[in-house]
Deep mutational scan, measured.
Amino acid sequence: AVSDRLIGRKGVVMEAISPQNSALVKVDGETWRATSGTVLDVGEEVSVKAIEGVKLVVEKLE
């Protein structure tokens, strides 16, 4: 799938994300809905860990 190429890519949080709420991230110039197990604020850099349906699963870039 096209989205599989995004695993391992870096992105930027466009809307705050919490474990209860998905929000938008920008990866390679494209906007995607994403979820995370932690709270992520706007502007934080993230890494794509997986794809669940049409959502990216991201975590904060260390």
Rank of each mutant, 00 (worst) to 15 (best):
V46Q: 02
K60S: 07
G53C: 04
T35V: 13
G53K: 03
D4L: 10
N21Y: 11
S47C: 15
V57F: 08
V13H: 01
E30I: 10
T35Y: 09
P19Y: 11
S3G: 10
E62V: 12
G8D: 05
A50L: 06
K60H: 06
I17F: 13
V39G: 08
V13W: 02
A23H: 07
E15R: 08
I51M: 06
V27A: 00
S22C: 15
D4W: 08
A16S: 10
K10N: 09
G37I: 13
K60R: 12
N21V: 09
I7E: 04
S22P: 09
E45P: 07
E59H: 06
V46I: 11
Q20H: 12
K49I: 15
G11P: 06
V54R: 09
G29M: 04
R9V: 07
K10A: 06
E44W: 09
M14F: 06
P19L: 10
L24S: 06
Q20Y: 13
E52H: 10
K60W: 03
V42I: 10
G37L: 13
R33W: 15
E30W: 07
Q20E: 12
A23K: 02
G11V: 02
L24C: 09
V12D: 03
S18G: 13
R33V: 14
K49L: 13
V54D: 15
V2N: 11
A50G: 11
A50K: 07
A1G: 12
G29A: 04
E52I: 12
V13S: 01
E62H: 12
G53S: 03
E30D: 07
V42F: 04
V58N: 00
A23M: 15
T31D: 07
S3A: 11
S36K: 00
A50D: 07
V2A: 11
S36Y: 05
V27M: 03
E59M: 07
V42Y: 05
G43H: 03
P19F: 10
G53R: 00
P19V: 09
E52F: 09
E15Y: 07
K55S: 13
L56M: 05
E30Y: 10
S22H: 12
R9Q: 11
Q20N: 13
K49A: 08
L6V: 05
V42D: 02
A23C: 14
E52C: 14
G37T: 14
S3V: 09
L40T: 01
G37S: 14
E62T: 12
L56F: 03
S47Q: 14
Q20A: 11
M14K: 04
R5C: 13
V54H: 14
S22M: 11
D28Y: 03
K49M: 11
V2R: 08
G11N: 01
L40S: 02
I51T: 05
E45I: 14
V54E: 15
I7D: 04
W32H: 08
A34E: 03
K26F: 13
R9F: 08
K49T: 13
S47F: 15
G29Y: 03
M14P: 01
V58F: 01
A23T: 07
G29F: 03
A16L: 14
S36V: 04
I17V: 11
S18Q: 08
S3F: 11
S22W: 13
S47K: 13
E52R: 08
I51F: 06
I17T: 15
R9M: 15
I7G: 02
R9S: 08
A16W: 15
E52K: 08
E59N: 05
N21D: 10
G8A: 02
V27H: 03
V57H: 06
L6K: 02
M14C: 09
S36M: 05
Q20M: 11
V25D: 01
S36L: 05
V25K: 00
S18P: 08
S22I: 12
W32Q: 01
E62N: 13
V48A: 00
V25R: 00
S36H: 04
V58W: 00
T31R: 05
I17H: 13
A23E: 03
V42G: 04
N21R: 11
T38A: 10
V48I: 10
S22V: 12
V42H: 03
V57W: 08
T31P: 05
V13I: 08
D41C: 15
G29H: 05
S3N: 09
A50F: 06
K60T: 06
W32N: 02
W32Y: 15
V39N: 12
G8K: 03
W32E: 03
S47Y: 15
E44A: 09
E30L: 09
V57N: 04
E59V: 12
V57R: 07
V13N: 00
E44I: 07
L56H: 03
A34L: 01
N21E: 09
T31F: 14
A34S: 04
I17D: 13
D4A: 09
K49S: 07
L56W: 00
V54F: 14
V46D: 01
T35K: 07
A50V: 03
E15G: 08
S3D: 09
N21W: 10
R33H: 13
G43D: 04
A1N: 12
K49F: 07
D4V: 09
E45Q: 10
V13Q: 00
E15K: 09
K60M: 05
T38S: 12
S47R: 15
A1Q: 13
G37V: 13
E44H: 05
D41L: 14
E52D: 13
V27G: 02
V25Q: 01
R9I: 07
K49D: 03
M14T: 08
V13A: 04
L40W: 02
E62Y: 12
G11I: 00
A16F: 15
Q20D: 13
A34T: 06
S3Y: 12
G29P: 03
K55A: 11
E44K: 03
A34P: 02
A23N: 05
V27Q: 02
K60I: 06
D4H: 13
V57D: 02
L40F: 05
S3T: 11
D28N: 07
A50C: 08
L40N: 00
A1F: 12
A23R: 01
A23D: 02
V2S: 10
L61G: 05
V39M: 11
V54Y: 13
I7C: 10
L6S: 02
V12C: 10
I51K: 04
V25A: 01
G43W: 03
L61M: 09
I51Y: 05
V58S: 00
V27T: 01
V58R: 00
E62I: 12
G53Q: 03
V12S: 03
G37E: 14
V58A: 00
A34C: 08
V46C: 03
S3R: 10
T31K: 05
V57I: 11
T35E: 08
R9H: 11
G11L: 00
E62L: 11
S3P: 13
L61H: 07
N21H: 12
K60V: 06
G53T: 03
R5T: 08
V39F: 14
S47E: 14
L61K: 05
E45H: 11
V27F: 03
K55L: 15
V48G: 01
G53P: 00
T38Q: 14
V25C: 06
V13R: 00
E44M: 13
P19M: 10
A1S: 11
G53L: 02
S3H: 11
G43Y: 04
N21T: 10
V46R: 00
S36F: 05
V25M: 00
A23L: 15
E15S: 10
K55Y: 15
S47H: 12
G37Y: 13
E30P: 00
V12T: 08
P19I: 09
K55W: 15
D41S: 14
P19C: 13
Q20S: 12
R9L: 14
V48N: 02
T38H: 11
R33F: 14
I51N: 03
E30C: 13
M14N: 02
R33A: 13
V58D: 00
V58K: 00
A50P: 00
E44Y: 05
V48H: 01
L24F: 09
I17Y: 13
I7F: 03
R9Y: 08
T31L: 15
I17A: 15
N21S: 11
G53M: 02
A50R: 10
E62W: 12
W32I: 04
W32L: 05
V54N: 15
R33T: 12
G37W: 13
E45A: 09
K10F: 11
K55V: 15
D41P: 06
L61A: 08
K26A: 09
S18A: 08
V54Q: 14
V42C: 06
E59R: 02
A1Y: 11
L6P: 02
R5V: 07
V2K: 10
I51W: 06
V46A: 02
T38F: 09
G8C: 08
E15T: 10
V57T: 04
I7L: 08
R33N: 11
R9P: 04
V25G: 02
L6I: 07
E59S: 06
S36T: 05
S22L: 13
E15H: 08
A16T: 11
K10C: 14
V58P: 02
E30V: 11
L6C: 06
V2W: 11
